[in-house]
Nucleic acid binder design. Sequence first.
DNA 1: CGCGACGTTGATGTCAGTCAAGAGGGGTGG
DNA 2: CCACCCCTCTTGACTGACATCAACGTCGCG
Lengths: 244, 244
Amino acid sequence: MTDIKESPLSRKLQVFVALSEDELGVLKRLHLRRRSFVAGRDLVHQGQSDQAVYILADGWVCSYKLQPDGTRQIVDFQIPGDFLGLRSVLLRTSDHSFEPVTDIQAAEVFADDLLEAFEKTPRLAAAILWAASRDEAMVVEHLAGVSRRAADARMAHFLLELGARLKLVGMESKKGYVCPLTQYHLADALGLRSVHVNRVLRQLRESGLLTLRDGRVTFDNYDGLVKLSGFDPAYLDQTGPLLK
Amino acid sequence: MTDIKESPLSRKLQVFVALSEDELGVLKRLHLRRRSFVAGRDLVHQGQSDQAVYILADGWVCSYKLQPDGTRQIVDFQIPGDFLGLRSVLLRTSDHSFEPVTDIQAAEVFADDLLEAFEKTPRLAAAILWAASRDEAMVVEHLAGVSRRAADARMAHFLLELGARLKLVGMESKKGYVCPLTQYHLADALGLRSVHVNRVLRQLRESGLLTLRDGRVTFDNYDGLVKLSGFDPAYLDQTGPLLK
DNA sequence: CGCGACGTTGATGTCAGTCAAGAGGGGTGG
DNA sequence: CCACCCCTCTTGACTGACATCAACGTCGCG
């Protein structure tokens, strides 16, 4: 990336805080150590011994937890601009794994460097913590969705939420976005079986609500989706203290 | 409480770190400002304007999120020794509400006092952050349970987890514990309807696994419950760095 | 060409929701 | 003291959403 202002992370943060040249400089230095990982091979991130965080620059990742019975629950997806393992620095984290959904590029940041950056630029720290707390809120919303919404509404809500997140980093066009997730990923995230994911997607397509084909989500009837799913982006939009 | 060592919070923390007299003193000072709340009336805790945290001393609380359709999802329960609103100090928190399940007693702590205590006694801070990260892990586990476990296993897992938590603060006896939750609370937490909670409880009772009657959980066959639910307390037992 | 990953579809089963009714207990007001 | 209500718990009959089982299609790749 030639200009740090165009990196997904700073695009996201700048929606909420105008960053100074100084802060952008610190952000840029955090991006120096670039690494790649291939799709499917777990990024083992064992909170303790490995004191590093990654800033995802390109590609998608999922964080999941394996169940005793062999099924897995995908807790969240990470898209460009998201942190991997941030909580394991702030808090001692729980034991979930990261799997790159696609080949990815990420910047590796050592915990000490991150904490030093936080001290030097408190506004940047606040912005990053804001993003982290938004991730928290998404996990809670995810729980509520799996617990309380029917399969079609759950799917619609999930894809709308992803769209809203991608919009922040400039990866959503007018009415849809590129989405590399397989139906298995969707199933593992939404608490469904892949066969049923398939049926739900067909039903949504035939109702003229949305189309997911060839790795691309198209919203055919955005308002209809919002209505079906009860999507309310309030929990993503937490503006407020950071604007001051 | 006459001796701070006997407070639920310090009992919990001392399972993992031996606290010095100094640290116990700091902990004691955090407990000075005592407040009571009655069952059922929400503790509005609006992260921003109200910069306080509570340490629950007596009684049970649930934290929940209201859905657009009127149903609610209980995200977690708090028992004595747990913090209310800790995350809203560490991170800017998401918007869920707290409802006391019973009449409660809690110590009010101002954010500044807490942060000062953290600076003075880093080991105490580490212990409290450990507890917070355990809460994180429980939300993830909760998501996995609602998403992947059948109703009976979900119920069993939930009640086993509560038992393990209560044990840390000395509120679990050999084979059960006092549990003030109604079947509506259980339904709102587990993603079931209260009628079905009732049926599941009957089934567990008739299988000789557990009994929930008159506000008391009795484990009639602990090993059977563990087997049914796949309960693995690993995510609660995070020992490790704090022992050093 | 064969294999594995992903997607699609149908038939059938079952777990949990819905609807409905009632019982016990505690609180409140007449 | 009784009458009434509300909250919680209980049970039964029926329904339906999602799972299960089983095939088959398609595409990319070694």
